[in-house]
C-alpha cells in the first residue's frame, strides 16, 4: 500500500536537502522574473488610466 519505512535514510535525506535548496532558489528565480515584468509594466503603463 505504501513505502513508509519509519527509518532514517541518510542518502535520501541529503537528496531532500538538495530539493529544498533548488526548490527555494527556483521559487525566488520565478518570483524575481515576475517582479521585473511587473516593474516594467508599471513603468511603461503606470499612471495611465487607459480604460
Amino acid at each position: 500500500m505504501n513505502g513508509f519505512t519509519g527509518g532514517f535514510d541518510a542518502a535520501l535525506f541529503e537528496v531532500s536537502l538538495g530539493i529544498m535548496a533548488k526548490g527555494m532558489a527556483g521559487v525566488f528565480l520565478v518570483i524575481l522574473a515576475i517582479w521585473l515584468v511587473v516593474a516594467a509594466l508599471n513603468r511603461f503603463t503606470g499612471g495611465k488610466n487607459d480604460e
Binding site: F8, F13, I19, M20, M24, I31
Partner: peptide
C-alpha cells in the same frame, strides 16, 4: 517566495521520518 520555506522543510522532515520521497 520566502514563505514557501515550510514546504521544503517539511518535505525533508517527512523523509527523515521514513516517508518515501
Amino acid at each position: 517566495a520566502a514563505a514557501q520555506f515550510g514546504i521544503f522543510f517539511t518535505l525533508s522532515a517527512a523523509v527523515a521520518l521514513g516517508f518515501p520521497l
